[in-house]
């Protein structure tokens, strides 16, 4: 069984938002909405400051509360890989999944269904990287299978320090930020 994940090197990310633009173009994301975004966190007082830049999106959690909350089964895990997807034909737009997501990764598409990052599943099926990963000019983003010991993601997580977002929320997120 594959388990897809992403490792993002915060030491290489410059926050250029190429990933955001690539996602919008690849997935026809409506104007004013975002499936991925850049967060910048600055701490401290000059000259003792620390800045972290994060390219964020749905964390494709292994224990996704959005999937649990969905009353119609529209939110589901795509197998193989455990990618969290929304079946537009099953979504009634009740927004329970949006309230259930601690990351604010979901939104209501102007056509009525709930939308979010899909890890570019259509590209993954063709053994391509998600659009955001493929365009990153600093190569800070890595996509791979956690069950494959040869994947870049596994090797990076074995050799580098990392953190996930809100692990205390208990969702087992699959986006890792290398620090």
């Amino acid at each position: 069984m594959a388990r897809y994940a992403m490792a993002i090197d915060t030491r290489k990310c410059v926050g250029c938002a190429d990933c955001v633009a690539a996602c919008e173009a690849e997935n026809d994301v409506p104007y004013g909405y975002a499936r991925d975004w850049i967060v910048q966190i600055a701490e401290g007082k000059f000259p003792n400051t620390h800045v972290e830049i994060l390219s964020e999106r749905c964390n494709h959690c292994s224990e996704a509360p959005c999937v649990d909350a969905c009353p119609t089964g529209a939110s589901h895990y795509y197998e193989p890989g455990g990618i969290v997807l929304v079946d537009h034909e099953k979504c009634i737009g009740c927004k329970a999944c949006i309230a259930a997501c601690p990351y604010g990764a979901r939104f209501v598409h102007p056509e009525g269904y709930v939308d979010k990052c899909t890890f570019c599943v259509h590209r993954v099926k063709e053994e391509l990287d998600p659009a955001c990963v493929s365009v990153c000019p600093t190569h800070c983003m890595h996509f791979g299978d956690l069950d494959d010991p040869e994947s870049d993601v596994v090797k990076l997580l074995q050799t580098r320090k990392y953190h996930a977002l809100l692990p205390e929320a208990g969702t087992k997120p699959n986006l890792y930020y290398l620090i």
Binding site: T72, K90, C91, I92, G93, C94, E111, G112
Partner: peptide, 22 residues
Amino acid sequence: DLEHKQFVWRLYTTFQITSPMS
């Protein structure tokens, strides 16, 4: 409140045990 009203019938084609809304 539903945003995708035309699919409201989907509520009654399934029972999702983990979903209080179901």
